[in-house]
Amino acid sequence: MGHKLTPFITGETIRERIDVLGREIVQSYENNEEPLVCICVLKGAFLFFSDLIRRVDRPMEVDFVRLASYGSATSRSEDVIFSKDLEVPIEGKDVLVIEDIVDTGHSMDFLLHVLKRRNPKSLKICALIDKHERRETGVQVDFAGFNLSEGFIVGYGLDYAERYRELDGIYELSTDAGK
């Protein structure tokens, strides 16, 4: 069985949207002189994170977290654990979590609860892809690159079994049963 990749969002369109997101984020925090703590959720958000923080023209600190779901390999798990925690303290600071995709919201809900216990001044989410129609939790994305309702997508950090992250654009992945 092979995979078919259908172009969905071009690299150029992503870069243009990131420019706009960068300006929106700067405007949102314009009355605060303190550094913004930008947190990258690994692995999927690393390309988006790298491009986005270069468009956010303001002082910042950066850090990384990695979440892991555990449970049956054949079903989506709502059980989430940290496999890499923050190193930067966030108490009393404005925090922006940067994620590749927020779908059902379970992982992000877990992360937000953990971060809120650390008493940040504010806590917002920026996601490259917001699948808000699939949300099963109350998680709200504050800055969304693109709103999608369906389709399995890869590229620009998003993967399927650790493949396709390196693609410049975003592609819809489908199974090509004929191969």
Rank of each mutant, 00 (worst) to 15 (best):
G2M: 04
H3A: 12
H3V: 12
H3F: 15
H3G: 02
K4W: 09
K4L: 12
T6G: 09
T6Y: 05
P7W: 02
P7Y: 11
G11M: 10
G11H: 02
T13R: 15
R17N: 07
R17A: 00
D19W: 01
L21T: 07
L21W: 06
G22N: 08
R23D: 10
V26R: 10
Q27H: 09
Q27S: 13
N31V: 00
N31G: 00
N32V: 00
E33N: 13
P35Y: 00
L36R: 05
L36I: 06
V37L: 15
V41E: 04
L42P: 01
L42G: 06
G44T: 03
A45W: 00
L47F: 09
F48N: 02
S50F: 07
L52E: 04
I53E: 02
R55D: 00
D57N: 15
R58M: 14
P59C: 07
V62P: 04
V62M: 12
D63V: 07
D63Q: 05
R66F: 06
Y70I: 02
Y70D: 06
G71N: 06
G71C: 05
G71I: 04
S72P: 06
A73T: 12
S75R: 13
S75L: 11
R76G: 04
S77A: 09
D79K: 14
K84G: 00
D85S: 10
L86A: 01
V88P: 03
E91K: 15
E91N: 10
K93P: 03
K93R: 15
D94K: 08
D94Q: 10
L96K: 08
L96E: 12
V97L: 05
V97T: 11
V97D: 05
V97N: 01
V97W: 06
I98S: 04
E99R: 05
V102R: 09
D103H: 12
T104L: 08
H106Y: 14
L112K: 12
V114P: 02
R118F: 09
N119E: 14
N119V: 04
K121W: 07
I125N: 07
C126F: 08
L128D: 14
D130R: 10
D130P: 12
H132Q: 13
E133S: 15
E133Y: 03
E136D: 10
E136Q: 13
T137E: 06
T137A: 08
T137V: 11
Q140I: 14
V141E: 11
D142C: 05
G145R: 01
F146N: 04
N147A: 09
S149T: 14
E150M: 01
F152M: 04
I153M: 05
V154C: 11
G157M: 01
D159Q: 04
Y160K: 03
Y160F: 12
A161H: 09
E162A: 12
R163K: 14
R163N: 03
R163L: 14
E166Q: 13
E166L: 08
L167N: 07
D168Y: 02
I170L: 13
T175G: 04
D176P: 10
D176A: 11
A177S: 12
G178L: 13
G178C: 14
